[in-house]
Design a protein around this nucleic acid. Sequence first.
DNA 1: AACTTGAGTGAACGACGTTAACAATCGGGG
DNA 2: CCCCGATTGTTAACGTCGTTCACTCAAGTT
Lengths: 250, 250
Amino acid sequence: MSEPARRQRVRVATEQEIREHTRAVLVTRGRDGLTLRAIAAELGMTAPALYRYYGSREDLLRAVASDICTELAGELAAASAAAVGELEPADDRRVSIAAVFAACRAFRRWALAHPAEFVLAFASTDQACPSDCAAGCRCGHAQFARAFLGVGVRLLAEHGIRLPADEELPPELVAALTPYRRTVLDTVAEAGIAVTDEVVTVGAVHFFLQAWARLYGHVALEVLGQFRFALDDAEPLFESMLADLAGHLS
Amino acid sequence: MSEPARRQRVRVATEQEIREHTRAVLVTRGRDGLTLRAIAAELGMTAPALYRYYGSREDLLRAVASDICTELAGELAAASAAAVGELEPADDRRVSIAAVFAACRAFRRWALAHPAEFVLAFASTDQACPSDCAAGCRCGHAQFARAFLGVGVRLLAEHGIRLPADEELPPELVAALTPYRRTVLDTVAEAGIAVTDEVVTVGAVHFFLQAWARLYGHVALEVLGQFRFALDDAEPLFESMLADLAGHLS
DNA sequence: AACTTGAGTGAACGACGTTAACAATCGGGG
DNA sequence: CCCCGATTGTTAACGTCGTTCACTCAAGTT
C-alpha cells in the first residue's frame, strides 16, 4: 500500500516545487511577468505540464497566496517569540504587549520587503475564500489571523486588559461579533491555548478586528505607495499607531 | 485661431467618452473583461484607434482611475454638504463632525457599490503617482485627499478640537509630518478655505492620516471580502470605528 | 486645387492561457 | 517477465490579448 503513497508523495513535492518557483518568478519578474511559460521554464518543463497539477493559472496563484500566508504566519510567530525572549520573563504585561508589537512590526517589514507577494496575498480580489470561509478554514487570511490570535489571546489571558464590557458596545455590534467570538474560541481551543471563555469577550474580538483594520490599512497604503503623497517615511506614523493601540490596552 | 481649438475640443471630448465607456466595461464585464477591443467596440471603433488617444492600456486605466477619484471626491463633498443641510446650523461642532461622518460613510457606501472601480483606483500598484507626487499633484489620491481635507479642515477651523500638542508627539513623527503640514496649508489656501496656520497643527495632520488609514483599512478589507472570515455584516464595526474617531475629537 | 494633418481601419506579430493528441515512464498483476 | 493502465510530460494548435504598421479618407490650410 506504500506504492500509491509513493506516487502521491512525489506529486505533492512537485506541486510544492511549482509553487516555490512561481513565487520566485513573481519576485524577479513582477506580476506582469508571472506567466505559466516563465514558471514552467524555471522548472525545466513546458507550460501545459502545469495543468497536471493545477486546474488553471488562478488556481495556482490561489495556492501560492495560501503558501505565502502560511509562511508569513510562521515568521510573525517567530518574531513575536524572539521579542519575548529578549525581555525579563517577570516583566508582566509588557512582555505580552511586546510580543504583539513584534508581530505587527514584522508584518509591516515583511510587506515592505515583499511587495509583490503582499499584493498577491492581501490586496487581490481573486483568491477570496470559496464562500463558506468559516471556522476550520485553511485559506490564507483565516490561517494568518490565527497567528495574530495566538499572540493576542496570550495577551488577553495572561494579563488582565481593560476593554469595554459587552454592555458598553452597541447591541448590533455585539450581535455581529458574537458568531466570530465563538469561532475564535474554537480556534484557540483547537490550537491548544488554554483560555477560559470569559477572557475572550466580544469587546476583545472587537478590539482585535479594529486593530487588524488599522494595521492592514497602514501597511497596504504604504506598500501600494499611496502614502507617498504625504510622507517619505511612514515608520513614525506606524509606530504612533502601535503606541495608540497600546494605549487602548493599558 | 478657433480652428485648432475646435479640433482640440472634439479630441478632448473623445478622450472623455473613451474613459466613460472604459468604466462601463469595467463595471459590466469585470476587470478581466476590460480589453481594448471591448472598449473600442462599445464606442463603435476598433482597438488600434484608442492608441490615437492613449499611449497604452495602462495609460488609459490610469486616466480612468483619476476620473474615478475626481468623481468620488465630488460625491463625498456632496454627501457631506447634504448632511450639514439636515442639521440646525447653530448646533456647533456636531455639524462639522456630522459632515466628516457623512463623507466617511459615503466613501464606504460608494466602495461597496463600486467594487471594481474601488480596486482599480485604490488597490492597484499600477497607477501610482509618477514619483514626485507632491503639492499640486492632480493624481488620484491627492485629489481625493483634498475632498477629505475640505471637510476635515472645516472641523478644525470652526470648532476647537482637542488634539495632542506638537510637543506631545515623538520628534521623528513631527519631522516626518512637517513637510506634509506645509502641503496641507498650501492646498487649503489654494482651495480658498480661510484658515490660520495655528489650526492646522502637526497633531491635526497626524490625526488626519491615522483616520485615513483606518477608514481605508476597513473599507479595503470589506470590499476585498477579507472580513468575511469574521463578519457577515461589517457595518456595525465601521460605525464603531467612526464613533471611536469622534471620541478622539471630543 | 494641391498639400498637410489627424482619425480610423484591417492585417499582422508575438505572447498569453488553455486544450487536445500523442509519447514515454513507472508500478503492480498475469 | 512482460504487458497494462495510470501518470507525467511533450508538441501543435486555437482563440484572444496588447500593440504596431501601412494604408485610406475626410477636414483644414495655403
